[in-house]
């Protein structure tokens, strides 16, 4: 499976979502099936960005791929696991 790690910006908010969405769609179309999002720089994440994570997971799942979120800082990790997203895809702490 084609694997790729993608670094995320410090703040992942609604205004970043359209560009990221097109980027992820492009990666999946190019054949990436293991997409790893590096959250080491991420300080905060809003609702639309959470939706983007879910939509990316769903799109990858549909074509037999997997999403993982890695190097997740404490407060963001706490949020994502509190929302139980870790039941659906891997979320690894920094």
């Amino acid at each position: 499976m084609t694997q790729m790690t993608f670094s995320m910006p410090a703040r992942v908010t609604a205004q970043d979502v359209p560009a990221l969405r097109e980027r992820y769609k492009g990666l999946i179309q190019e054949g990436v099936r293991e997409l790893s999002l590096d959250f080491s720089q991420v300080e905060s994440i809003d609702s639309m960005a959470i939706g983007l994570l879910v939509a990316t997971h769903n799109s990858l799942l549909k074509c037999g791929g997997v999403l993982s979120v890695v190097n997740t800082p404490g407060n963001v990790y706490q949020l994502l696991t509190l929302m139980r997203l870790d039941k659906h895809f891997t979320i690894a702490q920094a």
Binding site: K25, V54, M83, R84
Partner: peptide, 14 residues
């Protein structure tokens, strides 16, 4: 908590 993954859809329709 429970987030409805199916309702969110994929990158094409979210």
């Amino acid at each position: 908590c429970k987030l409805d993954f199916q309702a969110v859809g994929g990158l094409d329709d979210f």
